[in-house]
């Protein structure tokens, strides 16, 4: 599955990109700017998950379900099991979201288009409704997350940043391996023609289910990383429908062209939000809304299409 993957240009560029971001974030930039990079890298994982779904024209308006579930899994593991180890945290987040995705996948794999979107939304709001009222999980105030450790030592902000970079690189490798495989190529094929896929002898529902679980794992991982990075989880900023909306927005802003695009898009989004909030606190939603419309109308391929025009590698669309 991973044969020769490190020789592929997408992965080499991706690893280079993550290295640059992490180095910028840890050594060069002031903390507020570096936070944007850290959050962007983390949330980019969830966007990557959405992008993989979107390639089959399935758009989840409730992906914050997995993002929030991963984040809360980290919080719960800390509260009841005392887990603060960063490796365990990310594994728990991914496993929890993956398991939930696996179960719900049996239902969602039968849905397409707006029904898929709406059912995803409904599931995410069910979780929101539960978390917002669950007093033992802090209701709407959420819970705080203590600093992450690694092998018993406190990781610190830089250490966490390196770790996030590491997880992102692994995810890039995994996502690329999936998308270049026969199964991954089925994703576009299913969007084009489900009947033919069935007649080629593969179950469309199974292919969608696999993809859905992968997508859920990525979103859960993003939630776990964000929980560790923010030191806080709460339903309004992690599970509410507007969070899902933001993730979808970043996906379309980034473009579906390349697995690096979600991370570029997510970092860009963090910057718009911070700047807009800083310099125009009463207009930041307007700026984001305007950006969204501008991208839809003038840059249908997303930000990535800009990169492609100036990209010296001339990458073929994968």
């Amino acid at each position: 599955m991973f044969k020769g993957i490190l020789k592929e240009q997408t992965i080499q560029v991706g690893i280079g990109f993550v290295f640059i971001v992490v180095l910028l974030g840890t050594f060069i930039l002031p903390e507020w700017m570096s936070n944007n990079f850290m959050y962007g890298l983390s949330r980019g994982l969830a966007v990557l998950g959405l992008m993989i779904l979107w390639r089959t024209n399935l758009v989840s308006f409730g992906h914050a379900l997995y993002y929030g579930f991963g984040a809360y899994a980290v919080a719960i593991a800390q509260k009841y099991l005392g887990v603060t180890d960063v490796f365990l945290r990310i594994l728990i987040a991914i496993a929890a979201a993956g398991l939930l995705g696996f179960v719900l996948g049996f239902i969602l794999r039968r849905y397409r288009e707006i029904f898929f979107a709406m059912l995803s939304l409904a599931f995410s709001m069910v979780l929101y409704g539960l978390l917002a009222k669950a007093e033992f999980l802090g209701s709407t105030d959420g819970m705080s997350i203590s600093p992450s450790t690694m092998f018993g030592f406190e990781l610190g902000r830089f250490g966490l940043f390196y770790f996030i970079g590491f997880v992102v690189i692994l995810s890039l490798i995994f996502a690329h391996a999936y998308l270049r495989s026969s199964l991954g190529h089925l994703t576009t094929a299913i969007m084009d023609n489900e009947i033919r896929v069935e007649y080629l002898g593969y179950s469309v529902e199974k292919a969608i289910h696999i993809k859905y679980v992968i997508s859920a794992c990525l979103a859960g991982g993003a939630g776990g990383l964000m929980a560790a990075a923010l030191g806080q989880v709460d339903p309004d900023s992690m599970v509410l429908w507007s969070v899902s909306g933001e993730l979808v927005f970043v996906t379309i802003m980034a473009g579906l062209g390349n697995i690096l695009a979600p991370f570029v898009g997510a970092i860009f989004f963090e910057f718009i939000r911070t700047y807009a909030y800083e310099f125009a606190p009463q207009a930041w939603q307007m700026i984001i809304g305007g950006t969204l419309l501008a991208i839809i109308f003038f840059l249908p391929g997303g930000l990535w299409s800009l990169f492609q025009k100036i990209n010296p590698f001339k990458k073929e669309k994968k």
């Binding site: 707006i114 979107a117 927005f249 379309i252 939603q285 950006t291 969204l292 419309l293 839809i296």
Partner: peptide, 15 residues
Amino acid sequence: DIHLIVLATFGLFWI
């Protein structure tokens, strides 16, 4: 695509 239209109205909502 129907999803893009929903997103556009989402942007309009923010505005």
